[in-house]
Design a protein around this nucleic acid. Structure first.
Lengths: 142, 142
DNA sequence: GTTGCTGCAAATGTTTTGCAATCAG
DNA sequence: CTGATTGCAAAACATTTGCAGCAAC
């Protein structure tokens, strides 16, 4: 399944690429390159940091992953590639996915009726900055 | 006027702070720390890079500036602190401000009617990824 | 066989830090 | 006067690069 995804993206299938793609798909925390390296290192001590970086960049270029820019400055990677937003918790540092179909439709409709000139919009996402009231519990928007 | 803003933020007024705040307010390109350093350097060769970084960070903490996270990884600073969005031009690398009052109202209304639990939303902004059709010309959304 | 991928170590670029001297209030 | 701010140089950190060897197709 991971192998298929890599092939479909037109990339060569290597053991390193399979391990890395598999790892990031099992995480839902928007890991950094280092997070991924640490996660795979015990079982794959031979895979280098440089390979992790190169592979992630390759995946972003191929559309298998998205990059998420953070307040802290280092890049994070996101296995979800649909048009979803992110909730940045100011106090806990968490980045939580946010998706709402209705809101997506509203925003899409809004831009469709606007006169947009000289650009082709490829994707629109929402960035929500928020304070987590109780850091121990999870949040919800329904 | 710059002096007043610094005082109102509860900060000590120093020549360096005045120069830096004045410089960034005259730019509307979301400058990096380096951009600001280069802009002020000719007239103020004594102001160090470290001071530029410390001062910008102080301003962000005090709410005088916003940080903008970029695809390229380095931080940019934005003198606009209202709830505005950014258009990231994939091909030119530009970051253009986007503000629409109607859209702001739509999004605010949307979240007001939602059940939001365990967070207090402080600010919501839109990130628009787009391709500039003609890199020479400017873009518009009306 | 050819092309692209990997790992290493070194390089790069940005941002932060420790600390003594200086300045604002 | 006192505590905050500055400048310097060094350090820290994330990410990229060059290149020789190796692996995928």
């Amino acid at each position: 399944m991971v192998r298929q995804k890599i092939m479909n993206a037109g990339l060569r299938v290597t053991p390193q690429r399979m391990v890395i793609l598999d790892a990031i798909q099992g995480m839902n925390n928007h890991p950094t390159a280092d997070d991924i390296y640490l996660a795979i290192h015990p079982a794959n001590p031979g895979i280098s940091m440089a390979t992790v970086y190169k592979t992630l960049e390759t995946y972003v270029d191929s559309g298998l992953l998205q990059k998420v820019y953070t307040r802290e400055g280092q890049m994070r990677y996101d296995p979800r590639i649909d048009n979803h937003g992110h909730i940045y918790c100011t106090n806990t540092g968490e980045i939580i996915d946010f998706y709402d179909d209705e809101l997506n439709k509203i925003i899409t409709a809004f831009f469709r009726k606007k006169k947009v000139s000289n650009i082709r919009i490829s994707n629109i996402s929402l960035q929500i900055n928020a304070l987590k009231t109780d850091p121990g519990k999870s949040i919800s928007i329904k």
